[in-house]
Nucleic acid binder design. Structure first.
Lengths: 255, 255
DNA sequence: CGCTCGATTGATTCTGTTCAAGAGGTGTGG
DNA sequence: CCACACCTCTTGAACAGAATCAATCGAGCG
């Protein structure tokens, strides 16, 4: 790992060639998240434009790479791992506003400064775009704008759901909603149907900060759900959902 | 008013002439919120396109005009009054996700169905655009897309702030944040500096549903703030902020 | 005048937090 | 290989903040 100061991360230009015999100059061509990300609107002919603008960056677990309030110099596209986005109060209280998984685009903001912080949950790989390069891409590819609007709208819907959760749901309802959301998210791309088995990359503390609860309440609630036969809590970060219907009833507010 | 069934509202085509001598065909030309709304990106030459697409609608206080889950047939631009946007749980618990004031655009969503409900707080006037007409405008005016993205980004920032409020702030901090937000909102356009005097159009119940509290807690907190010399609670919906610094300290989390 | 509705205030309850202790797992170094 | 520190998670007991239940008050209105 590099020995750069403070809040740093490894990065390498996007065009780097892997392997000896590879004549591969465009990472984007083989990018696994391209089909589901905003990048998909840029066609095969123009893909080099994308590769030129992007810098692949690897971020180790726990490392922050967007600081709330700092100048917004870059945009990011998550290609692997999970990122937590958060806002904090001066005294340290923290609210995680969302988890970004592969394919998610980070940095939507009009302001010159980031409105939120971002930190890697596990090992994360992102494509980094400078503000300038991003502006060029937006000028040259109108479809990109529409796609970003779509992305923003989706996040807005998610944010509204989260506001309902934080403002009006009980602890049990929150945890149930969270587990179901995670299950649905894990079933999105070409992922195998996991039979209710989840691998949550984040800690109890992260879940608590996401749900507006404390670590203890999350732990207690999970234990209660286990006692009700709704879930199975495995070692590490594994949770198995045994009864989706029971969780559904809970999440909808029928305590 | 038309005699349409169920959840309806008065509406009239945008081009209607007011007054006898008026040769005015483009409402949009004289629209007071055009400069600050998404419509501003459509230049004077094309303004008739806008007027043709828009239908002005007047909505009486308390009437809903967007039903959560209903087919998303229209987009709206608020021209006067205040709209509350909300989501609800099956048992009636409700979370107001935002208040839309003049200039705000409603309907950003990718889905075919509205993700939230909307209801007039006071008498509201909106410009209604059908989905089709809106799509045409988006195709013909690329700038509109960028402007909507900007709008969506702003709402996203507001949503993240609200998540922090709902997830991590105490009742006092929530109410303080709310009052300061309302004050800033009232100082935005060409509005006269009100000397801290606010006219909140919404009821205590609306404020409670917005802040994730109960009516009683909102009332008690306002009374407490009054006892601390922070605010003055007038009749009806008037509140005067006596000490912005005190509220700032509260809102930031230094209880 | 009596009705309803919204707001305020009080008394009590309860959900989730805080404080505290212990269990289980992991990595380090002797 | 084991002792130790460290971390996360779990569980228990006491506490606190907001919700709930309830009564009163005032304004608007038929």
């Amino acid at each position: 790992m590099s020995d750069m100061p403070s809040c740093q991360f490894e990065s390498r230009p996007r065009r780097i060639v892997i392997g000896a015999g590879g004549a591969q100059t465009d990472f984007c061509t083989t990018c696994s998240v391209r089909p589901t990300s905003v990048c998909s609107v840029i066609g095969p002919d123009d893909i080099s434009r994308l590769s030129d603008a992007a810098v692949e960056t690897i971020i180790p677990p726990g490392r922050g790479f967007i600081e709330e309030g700092a100048p917004a110099t870059d945009f990011f596209n998550v290609t692997s791992g999970t990122v937590k986005l958060f806002k904090a109060l001066p005294d340290g209280r923290r609210q995680i506003t969302g988890f970004a998984s592969p394919g998610h685009f980070l940095g939507l903001a009009v302001s010159d400064n980031y409105a939120f912080g971002a930190e890697a949950v596990d090992t994360v790989r992102v494509c980094r775009f400078s503000r300038d390069k991003m502006a060029d891409l937006l000028d040259d590819f109108p479809k990109l704008e529409r796609r970003l609007l779509e992305e923003a709208s989706n996040e807005l819907v998610a944010a509204q759901n989260q506001m309902l959760l934080l403002g009006r749901k009980t602890a049990r309802e929150r945890v149930a909603s969270f587990l179901l959301d995670q299950m649905h998210a894990s079933q999105l791309p070409g992922q195998e149907s996991s039979g209710g088995r989840l691998h949550l990359p984040m800690t109890r503390g992260d879940i608590a900060d996401y749900l507006g609860l404390t670590i203890e309440t999350v732990s207690r609630t999970l234990s209660w759900m286990r006692s009700q036969g709704m879930i199975e809590v495995g070692k590490g970060y594994a949770i198995t959902i045994l009864s989706v219907p029971k969780l559904d009833v809970l999440a909808a507010g029928n305590t």
